[in-house]
Design a binder for these strands. Structure first.
Lengths: 170, 170
DNA sequence: GTATGTGCAAATGTTTTGCACGTAC
DNA sequence: GTACGTGCAAAACATTTGCACATAC
């Protein structure tokens, strides 16, 4: 067993019920309403591959409910982020992406992004986490979140073959 | 001596001549031209506090040359980034910021950003750098760059007093 | 002289907002 | 019934682009 773990960027087995509950609690607390749109968007989001863009999510949502609008998806994902079940990510390609938050998955991770094929791999290293806490402490900071992204070439044969198709803007 | 260092986000003593030379070399190599606008923008950028936005830079540039346009500053900073003297940064407030690149300053660093006052502190920790190389290596990645940003509250009395004025969107 | 650069305004792409209508509570 | 939510289109924002004119080489 090492202190580093990693995983490909795809949906992890989570318990949707717990997430719905968390969302409902938040909405009740804030006097917000449970609507069919919010339910559909939540279901779709929980089923989505990680790091979805609003466009991708909207397309998936519209397969179930074609009349749902752009703005609703934007607003709903902001809500999910506020309530703590979703996290906003920005990998420099100009589109905000969303994934389940670390509280929701009980699993903090950072990202390795391939410049060539755009593949996103998650990693987690306790030693790095500890050191970063130490750095912040020395400077008197209370950490609320962090972002650690490593960009590079993943060197898979498929990737080298594929070339630059999906590479994020760098 | 420890393996962590840090510094406030303000201009470090650099040698502008070396940077101009680097820029000139790049332009010559690429068949690009040395214009008065590019010179003024370069001078202003070298004198700027770190992490300037295009707006801030444009304002400073126009104090010297009021007729310089937005697009020119955008295009010129892209050029600086390509040539390796500037680095693009994005701290989640929707505006791209530029700072001298690590090659230009001979000093790689990462960032601690205060959620309350927006203050940006640079840090560098060799142990984290090493661990991150190790993680990438295990996954077969060749690192080209990385981004490590820690967000939190800096807890200075001034900051607590100032409140949320300049806080980046989070 | 010609290719490259500039300034302006218009276009682009993403995200946000105003508003009339709809709906949860 | 009322406050909140939705869909649409328009606005807002940062950034990029097209084009006529200017300028470095």
């Amino acid at each position: 067993m090492t202190s580093t773990e990693h995983v490909e960027g795809h949906p992890r087995k989570i318990d949707p019920d717990a997430l719905f509950e968390r969302l409902d609690d938040y909405m009740t607390r804030k006097g917000l309403r449970s609507t069919s749109q919010r339910r559909v968007i939540a279901e779709t989001f929980f089923d989505s591959p990680k790091h979805v863009t609003i466009d991708e999510l909207l397309a998936a949502v519209r397969e179930r409910e074609p009349r749902i609008g752009y703005a609703t998806v934007y607003r709903t994902l902001k809500l999910f982020a506020e309530c703590g079940i979703a996290a906003e990510r920005n990998f420099g390609d100009g589109q905000t992406r969303y994934e389940l938050s670390e509280e929701a998955t009980d699993h903090h991770h950072d990202h390795l992004i391939c410049n060539q094929c755009g593949r996103i791999i998650e990693f987690h290293d306790d030693r790095i986490e500890k050191l970063q806490e130490q750095v912040a402490k020395e400077l008197g900071f209370d950490i609320s979140s962090h972002k650690h992204e490593i960009y590079g070439d993943c060197n898979r044969t498929e990737c080298v073959a594929e070339g630059r198709r999906k590479a994020p803007r760098r």
